[in-house]
Design a protein around this nucleic acid. Structure first.
Length: 205
DNA sequence: AGCACGATTAACT
DNA sequence: GTTAATCGTGCTC
């Protein structure tokens, strides 16, 4: 895959709109593969192609934070789609999610892997001493690399002037997509522990 | 007020 | 493969 065409005319690349997120979560996750995540930091674009994501769908999903219902933490999940849900875990790491489905139904997509495309030097500076292949190959690493934390929680991904959004990227054919159980749900009962809501793209730069 | 646990990472054996 | 680090969240007392 060559250089992304939109790099040379980025000002014309539109944010994905709210209707993109206002759909069944599994459909949104699949279509997010290959899209470009963009973080505007001090006017500079930091970006990467999304290659791994997971779905967390509703209060019935015991792996989803919304299984505890409406709390201060899960409030954003019940809000309108197309917003960021950023939470803190393991005492160290931030996790970036996108809210999906209609307002009132709590669902989110965890961004687990991206391939950096823009702002490489700034990203590298935040991942000192580590090989490029491991800069953004985990949900906590993405937030470190792109300077995402609680300040980005509840950010509107669809607003015209937003610091975080998704735009068109590259096509990922079905032949390059694999699915499997979500990661890290060790104490979650079946079937939620093993349901194949993790989506991964084979993507060669 | 105290407790158990976590949608992880990096370092270690 | 195993494990420590580290603290916000939600639950119990």
């Amino acid at each position: 895959m060559g250089r992304l065409w939109l790099n040379s005319r980025m000002t014309s690349a539109p944010h994905l709109d709210r209707q993109f997120y206002n759909r069944p979560t599994l459909q949104v996750v699949r279509e997010l593969l290959g899209k470009q995540l963009v973080r505007i930091e001090n006017g500079e674009r930091l970006a990467g192609i999304i290659v791994e994501a997971e779905a967390y769908i509703g209060e019935d999903d015991l792996g989803c934070h919304a299984h505890v219902g409406y709390t201060p933490r899960t409030r954003v999940l019940y809000g309108p789609p197309g917003h960021a849900y950023v939470y803190f875990t393991y005492g160290n790491y931030w996790m970036l999610n996108f809210v999906a489905e209609r307002e009132g139904f709590p669902a989110a997509i965890l961004i687990r892997g991206i391939v950096p495309t823009e702002g490489i030097e700034r990203i590298a500076a935040r991942r000192p001493g580590r090989p490029q292949a491991h800069w953004t190959d985990g949900p906590g690493k993405i937030c470190l690399a792109l300077a995402i934390n609680k300040a980005q929680n509840e950010v509107d991904l669809c607003a015209s002037e937003t610091e975080l959004f998704v735009e068109e990227g590259v096509n990922i054919p079905d032949s390059c997509v694999t699915t499997g159980p979500r990661v890290g749900l060790n104490n979650v009962p079946e079937p939620w522990k093993s349901i194949p809501w993790r989506f991964m793209a084979r993507y060669e730069t």
